[in-house]
């Protein structure tokens, strides 16, 4: 064996060993199980808590309200669309109450007059229609076809 190889082979062996040792420390667990990523990350992403509970969860206690809504134009709209996230309320039903939006601006997000909006949605000009009053003083948001006064 030539003397060059005698010196280089052990040197390379040391390099390769050091590389493999460093690699085993640096590459995280489960990396490469399914592809070029850390497979455990999928499970970690699954673990996050839900803030919005979903309409089925509201249905457990408030099915009467949901059935009532099914009879009018706002049918199919999730409770949390207007009332905001409900998981906290489900965990503490007495102390945490969902939001009840009251302002004109909130209803206006869907119903203010805008040529971009689909004609299927009833639209009003908020600058002209009963400017001083909030929508829910006359309109029932759960049964929009029924007027309160």
């Amino acid at each position: 064996m030539p003397p060059q190889l005698k010196r280089l082979i052990p040197l390379f062996a040391i390099f390769i060993f050091l590389f493999l040792a460093a690699r085993s420390f640096l590459v995280p667990k489960s990396f490469g199980e399914q592809g070029h990523y850390r497979f455990n990350s999928i499970a970690e992403n699954k673990e996050k808590a839900m803030i919005y509970a979903g309409k089925e969860a509201c249905d457990d206690c408030h099915s009467d309200r949901i059935q009532e809504m099914e009879t009018d134009l706002h049918k199919g709209i999730s409770c949390e669309t207007c009332h905001g996230p409900g998981s906290a309320h489900i965990a503490n039903p007495d102390s945490i109450k969902p939001m009840i939006p009251k302002g004109r601006d909130f209803c206006g997000m869907c119903h203010s007059l805008n040529p971009s909006r689909s004609k299927l949605v009833h639209q009003v000009d908020l600058k002209e229609h009963n400017v001083t009053e909030n929508c829910i003083e006359c309109h029932n948001p759960h049964l929009p076809c029924q007027m309160k006064k």
Binding site: I42, N45, K46, E47, K48, A49, M50, I51, Y52, G54, K55, H74, G76, I77, S78, E80, T81, C110, S118, L120, V121
Partner: peptide, 19 residues
């Protein structure tokens, strides 16, 4: 992903009033 893997729909689909 934390919702759809538990059988729920996404938050944006949940709240969309016009589907």
């Amino acid at each position: 992903y934390h919702r759809i893997s538990k059988g729920k729909t996404t938050a944006c689909v949940e709240v969309c009033p016009t589907h």
